[in-house]
Simulated assay, not measured.
Amino acid sequence: MAKPTALPLARLLQLASPALPVGAFSYSQGLEAAVDAGIVRDRASAVRWVGDVAALSLARWELPLLARLITAWHAKDTDTATAINARFLASRESAELRAETVQMGYSLARLAAQLPIDGHESLEALEEPAFPTAYAFAVAAWSVPEREALVAYLWSWMENAVMAAVKCVPLGQTDAQRALLELGDRIEALVTESLETGEEAMAPSLPHLALLSSRHETQYTRLFRS
């Protein structure tokens, strides 16, 4: 019987760490525009915003695609990974949101080549790897279990969103930790939902988020790039 190893967990923690040099901290994914519009103004409204985007966008679109990307990279099926990558890029509804995932994906692909991660040439062959595509590649290369990878991806996204709220709402650090506790309680159910979501139920569109993201592109003052 094989001895369990903590290495995949350590690799996953590295991949989900805010110290990962992909520039996630510079993006708010529309949250800053929601603050400017008065939709997000305190901890309760920030939790509602982050929770809604997680439930209505990530769990129904980004995470199901991420799971499919992990499967494709495990099988070394570059054609399928490329097709899913194009599908995700096509779902980004504003220039900012598309630029965000392309910049972060490029940064992670470049890091994969510099570390290096085995097989990084397959990822580099993609013209514009989106961030979920690059993340899934690292997950497969490092033999990280799929469910744990989705949990870490969602947690990392939530943490980044709450830290953006700290800067632009603003929120205090204690309120931020309370928000993360509340949001963290939802992760198990959201990941389960995403793994059970079939093609017919996958929904990439959040029209209000797309509108706010578009408005952010011409917002008078900005802390974040999206």
Rank of each mutant, 00 (worst) to 15 (best):
residue 84 I to L: 13
residue 85 N to Q: 06
residue 85 N to H: 07
residue 85 N to E: 14
residue 85 N to F: 03
residue 86 A to K: 05
residue 86 A to F: 08
residue 86 A to T: 14
residue 87 R to Y: 10
residue 87 R to H: 10
residue 87 R to L: 13
residue 87 R to K: 03
residue 88 F to Q: 09
residue 90 A to C: 01
residue 90 A to Q: 14
residue 93 E to F: 07
residue 93 E to Y: 12
residue 93 E to S: 12
residue 93 E to D: 15
residue 94 S to L: 08
residue 94 S to H: 05
residue 95 A to C: 03
residue 95 A to H: 13
residue 96 E to K: 05
residue 96 E to V: 14
residue 96 E to M: 02
residue 96 E to I: 12
residue 96 E to P: 09
residue 97 L to C: 03
residue 97 L to T: 14
residue 98 R to I: 12
residue 99 A to C: 07
residue 99 A to G: 11
residue 100 E to K: 05
residue 100 E to M: 14
residue 101 T to L: 00
residue 101 T to E: 11
residue 101 T to N: 02
residue 102 V to H: 05
residue 102 V to S: 04
residue 103 Q to G: 01
residue 103 Q to F: 04
residue 105 G to E: 11
residue 105 G to P: 15
residue 105 G to Y: 11
residue 105 G to T: 15
residue 105 G to K: 09
residue 106 Y to K: 09
residue 106 Y to M: 05
residue 106 Y to P: 08
residue 106 Y to Q: 12
residue 107 S to F: 04
residue 107 S to V: 04
residue 110 R to A: 11
residue 112 A to P: 13
residue 112 A to C: 15
residue 114 Q to M: 08
residue 117 I to C: 00
residue 118 D to P: 13
residue 118 D to S: 11
residue 120 H to T: 14
residue 120 H to N: 11
residue 121 E to D: 15
residue 122 S to T: 14
residue 122 S to L: 09
residue 123 L to W: 10
residue 123 L to Y: 09
residue 125 A to F: 11
residue 126 L to Y: 13
residue 127 E to G: 02
residue 127 E to T: 13
residue 127 E to I: 09
residue 128 E to P: 08
residue 128 E to V: 09
residue 128 E to H: 13
residue 128 E to A: 03
residue 129 P to C: 06
residue 129 P to F: 05
residue 129 P to H: 09
residue 132 P to H: 01
residue 132 P to Q: 05
residue 134 A to N: 12
residue 134 A to Q: 07
residue 135 Y to V: 08
residue 136 A to Y: 09
residue 137 F to L: 05
residue 137 F to N: 01
residue 138 A to E: 08
residue 138 A to N: 04
residue 138 A to I: 12
residue 139 V to H: 02
residue 139 V to K: 00
residue 141 A to D: 08
residue 142 W to L: 04
residue 142 W to F: 12
residue 143 S to M: 06
residue 144 V to C: 00
residue 145 P to R: 00
residue 145 P to Y: 07
residue 145 P to N: 03
residue 145 P to H: 02
residue 146 E to M: 04
residue 147 R to Y: 06
residue 147 R to S: 04
residue 147 R to C: 08
residue 148 E to Q: 13
residue 148 E to K: 00
residue 149 A to T: 03
residue 149 A to D: 01
residue 150 L to P: 01
residue 151 V to T: 10
residue 152 A to L: 04
residue 152 A to S: 06
residue 152 A to F: 04
residue 152 A to Q: 07
residue 153 Y to W: 14
residue 153 Y to P: 02
residue 153 Y to E: 03
residue 154 L to C: 05
residue 155 W to I: 01
residue 156 S to G: 06
residue 156 S to V: 02
residue 156 S to W: 01
residue 158 M to A: 01
residue 159 E to N: 09
residue 161 A to L: 12
residue 162 V to S: 04
residue 162 V to T: 11
residue 162 V to G: 02
residue 162 V to L: 02
residue 163 M to G: 01
residue 163 M to A: 03
residue 163 M to E: 15
residue 163 M to C: 10
residue 164 A to L: 07
residue 165 A to E: 05
residue 166 V to F: 00
residue 167 K to Q: 15
residue 167 K to Y: 14
residue 168 C to G: 01
residue 168 C to L: 00
residue 168 C to I: 15
residue 169 V to P: 01
residue 171 L to I: 11
residue 173 Q to D: 14
residue 173 Q to S: 09
residue 174 T to M: 00
residue 175 D to R: 06
residue 175 D to I: 07
residue 176 A to N: 10
residue 176 A to Q: 09
residue 176 A to R: 09
residue 177 Q to W: 09
residue 178 R to V: 15
residue 179 A to K: 06
residue 179 A to N: 07
residue 180 L to H: 02
residue 181 L to G: 06
residue 181 L to H: 12
residue 181 L to R: 13
